[in-house]
Simulated assay, not measured.
Amino acid sequence: MIEAAMIWNEPNNKSHWDPELDPDWSRFAEMAMLAADAITRENPHLTRVLGGISPIDPGFMSRMKNFGVLDHVDAVAVHGFPLDWNLWQIHQWPQKLDEIRTVTDLPIWVSEVGISTFGAEEVQVWGLDRTAELLLGQAPRIQWYSLYDLPMAWGATTRHREAEGSSYYRHFYMGLLREDGTPKPALDAFARHAPAMGLVQWFHYEDPRLDEAVAWMKRLGVTYLRTGLSWADSFRPNALDWFDRQMAALADFDVTLTFCFTPEHRGFMPHHTSPPLVPDEFARFCAAMIRRYAPAQASTPAMEPLPAG
């Protein structure tokens, strides 16, 4: 079921990692290598992917290479949103992949690519088809973000929220389905490119959309999916019950499981973007999740508690 473990999400984006607390990313590098090695000890056959970078920056990738991080992973990943946030045009996708290829020979996954319907729903249709034309066959995984629009009441995972103007509000219009679950025009376009193109769908803690999302993905012909398990959520009441339910619901898909989000009480600052006080605690969380949901030998996962932190 789980084909890959992704270590963090957008580590070079200050909405996901605080550069003021880790200006040279040395703390991130240490944490990532500890996590990668912990994952390997639990299941050496699982693909380890460095969290997708956004923006696509060969300089950041070179930094990770110099720290030795790329020696501990099997693939790297990039995220691109040229019609919404990036300062480059959609037809530059091949060039962006080539920029990362100058740094590493590792496979490059496009673990998030998407286009919002903030301006017009028709733009998403054109952009999805053009993205497929440019990227399918050029990377081992192309994962479209996302299935659902983000509910406005939930808020987006970003640093400056409404102060970002339209950039913030675009976060809420990235889905193929509207917040109420009704299809947008691009849903049919996506179906034409599945299963070659996969999906990204983040599920919030006890997300009520889980079962409906599974039904939609099967209807669309999706075979591979990227989602996440939050280290921060692991400290919520009944966290393992929710994690178990989520992973059981996704059992029919090849899942890339992203591990990220620092618990407030375990960071240098009380924020999910903070480096952890003890980086090995994140590694132990990753190991526990692999042991539970992707053990090296097929067996019934042991119902063990989460590691203390």
Rank of each mutant, 00 (worst) to 15 (best):
Y205C: 01
Y205F: 15
Y205I: 03
E206W: 14
E206V: 10
E206C: 05
E206S: 04
E206Y: 13
E206K: 14
E206F: 11
D207P: 08
D207I: 09
P208E: 12
P208I: 08
P208T: 12
R209A: 14
R209T: 14
R209L: 14
L210Y: 05
L210F: 04
L210W: 03
L210S: 09
L210M: 09
D211F: 05
D211V: 04
D211M: 06
D211G: 05
E212Y: 01
E212R: 15
E212A: 14
A213C: 12
A213Q: 04
A213V: 08
A213Y: 02
A213E: 04
A213W: 02
V214S: 06
V214H: 06
V214T: 10
A215Y: 01
A215C: 01
A215Q: 13
A215I: 03
W216P: 02
W216L: 02
W216F: 07
W216I: 02
M217T: 11
M217Y: 05
M217W: 06
M217H: 07
M217F: 05
M217R: 04
K218P: 01
K218E: 15
K218V: 06
K218W: 03
K218H: 15
R219A: 11
R219V: 00
R219Y: 02
R219G: 01
R219H: 11
R219S: 12
L220Y: 06
L220M: 15
L220R: 09
G221W: 04
G221Q: 12
G221D: 08
G221F: 06
G221P: 13
V222Y: 08
T223I: 08
T223V: 10
Y224W: 06
Y224P: 00
Y224M: 04
Y224V: 01
Y224H: 15
L225E: 07
L225M: 09
L225Y: 10
L225G: 07
R226K: 14
R226C: 12
R226M: 12
R226N: 13
R226D: 06
R226L: 13
T227R: 05
T227S: 09
G228I: 00
G228M: 03
G228L: 00
G228F: 02
G228Q: 09
G228H: 05
G228T: 02
L229A: 06
L229D: 03
L229T: 08
L229Y: 05
S230K: 04
S230V: 01
S230L: 05
S230W: 02
S230Q: 07
W231P: 00
W231L: 01
W231G: 00
W231K: 02
A232G: 00
A232L: 10
A232Y: 02
A232N: 12
D233A: 13
D233Q: 14
S234C: 13
S234W: 13
S234G: 02
F235E: 06
F235N: 03
F235R: 13
